[in-house]
């Protein structure tokens, strides 16, 4: 907590994506976690950024290509004869 300064907040933010993606070496993770323990704002930023990523990754309702779009695509590519196999 003693090392808390806005400089550390900025450094934390610069590494935030990589921290969330688990791409940082353990010693850097430890530094970030120490900073987070003493900085409410950075903790909020971390939690809400993680949640933002979760939300956009929620399974999309329309995972597949609609049938009519697929039919027009196959026609455009002259692949109509392969169309019945869905």
């Amino acid at each position: 907590m003693s090392d808390h300064s806005h400089k550390n907040c900025k450094a934390m933010l610069g590494s935030l994506s990589e921290y969330i993606d688990g791409e940082l070496p353990p010693e850097l993770c430890q530094e970030i976690e120490q900073h987070l323990a003493g900085c409410d704002n950075c903790r909020v930023v971390l939690n809400t950024t993680k949640r933002t990523i979760d939300l956009v990754q929620m399974p999309v309702e329309q995972e597949e290509v609609p049938d009519d779009v697929r039919a027009r695509l196959f026609k455009r590519l002259n692949l109509d004869d392969y169309l019945p196999q869905t």
Partner: peptide, 19 residues
């Protein structure tokens, strides 16, 4: 635009309210 300005912790809102 990189520095955050809003520090509201909405991350614990229940899923049905988030979605």
């Amino acid at each position: 635009g990189l520095m955050p300005e809003i520090f509201v912790d909405w991350s614990l809102l229940p899923e049905d309210e988030l979605l």
